[in-house]
């Protein structure tokens, strides 16, 4: 997946977790927590969805990389590079 495709995938996951949010206006550099009021339970869901959909494993000590869209895509890029978008 390209960074743009990874971003789309994260948007899709966020849409599942927080269906009432307007994700069109998401600013990639600002933390999810500040924009979407995500809490630790929601972050676990991002991790679990990535595992479920793409078998991507994210160890607990790396959760901090999922703070914003920008940092998430940067972190996932090497892990998801070889995944072919369905």
């Amino acid at each position: 997946m390209s960074p743009a495709e990874i971003r789309d995938e994260i948007i899709d996951i966020l849409g599942d977790i927080a269906p009432d949010e307007n994700l069109d206006e998401l600013v990639d550099e600002v933390s999810f927590r500040d924009q979407l009021e995500l809490d630790s339970m929601d972050f676990l869901d991002i991790v679990m969805e990535l595992r479920k959909r793409h078998r991507v494993q994210i160890p607990e000590e790396d959760y901090g990389n999922l703070a914003s869209m920008q940092s998430t895509v940067t972190y996932l890029e090497p892990k998801m590079r070889d995944i072919v978008k369905a």
């Binding site: 977790i17 927080a18 009432d20 979407l36 009021e37 809490d39 339970m41």
Partner: peptide, 14 residues
């Protein structure tokens, strides 16, 4: 409906 914080919102999301 639509509240983002609090236990009820959390359980609906989760």
């Amino acid at each position: 409906k639509g509240t983002k914080r609090g236990p009820l919102a959390k359980l609906i999301r989760q």
